[in-house]
Simulated assay, not measured.
Amino acid sequence: MVDTFYKLQGWRLRFPVMEYIDFSNNNIKVLPMIRDYEMTSKTTKSVVIIDLRCNITSLTKGMIDSFSTDEFVKVDITKNPFLCDCGIIRAIEYLSSKTMPKAYDYLGSLECANLSNVRGRQLLSLSLTELNCNTDTVIHFPIFFMSIITITLFVITLLTIYFRNLIKVILFTRLNINFPCEFRNDINEEKDYDSFIAYSEKDVDWVIRIALPKLESESSS
């Protein structure tokens, strides 16, 4: 198995007295939001254990939040081959500062499987120096991602404004999309006809010297 998302949708409502689900020794990498659907001691007498040992390699704050708040569910993520690199720093800081339910006291004793220099060490005993990280190199991914999107949209907007006339021409000639007419205040000019010329840059001399004078002359029809 590679995920548990669909298998855990509404599971507690259908099996209120279930006590154990074994997902250990699979290929599950991401934990779903595990809920007890507000079960109470009146609706269930059991605390179900969801066994996710020997699956995941990474641990994040979001993963911890996904399972550590429900009273009638306990998720076991011990014996997982956690990769202890800069990406796990936020999870370590979160575990160090947050008071977990008693059922999750074991989170403080989780150990690293990789990298080799910290193999067998408890997560909470690690320092930024040992992981070759510092606070400047630990990336805030949501902020980084939003910054990239903002910069990209800004560049696209600038390019759209700069090439707006060319874009109008391409949309009209290629996709037959016509923008609303733009008002032009041409003083003392009354035009009976409008002309649109699409031409190659190689023909610009011919257009200016021959085509335009011919179109604009009174004798042209």
Score class of each variant (00 low, 15 high):
M1N: 13
M1S: 09
L8H: 01
Q9H: 08
R12D: 03
I21L: 01
D22Q: 06
F23L: 03
N25W: 12
N25F: 07
D36A: 08
E38Y: 15
M39G: 06
S41I: 04
S46P: 12
D51F: 02
D51N: 10
R53N: 02
N55F: 00
L59G: 04
T60W: 08
T60L: 04
M63D: 13
K74M: 08
V75P: 05
P81K: 02
L83A: 01
G87R: 13
I88F: 10
I89Y: 03
Y94H: 15
K98F: 03
T99W: 13
S116K: 08
V118C: 02
Q122L: 14
L126S: 04
L128S: 01
T129S: 13
E130G: 11
N132K: 11
C133D: 00
T135C: 00
T137A: 06
H140R: 07
P142Y: 02
S147K: 04
T152S: 10
F154V: 13
L159N: 07
I161W: 12
I161L: 14
R164P: 12
K168G: 12
K168L: 09
L171Q: 09
T173E: 12
N178D: 05
C181I: 12
C181M: 12
K191S: 14
D205S: 04
L212P: 11
P213Y: 00
L215W: 03
S217E: 05
S219N: 13
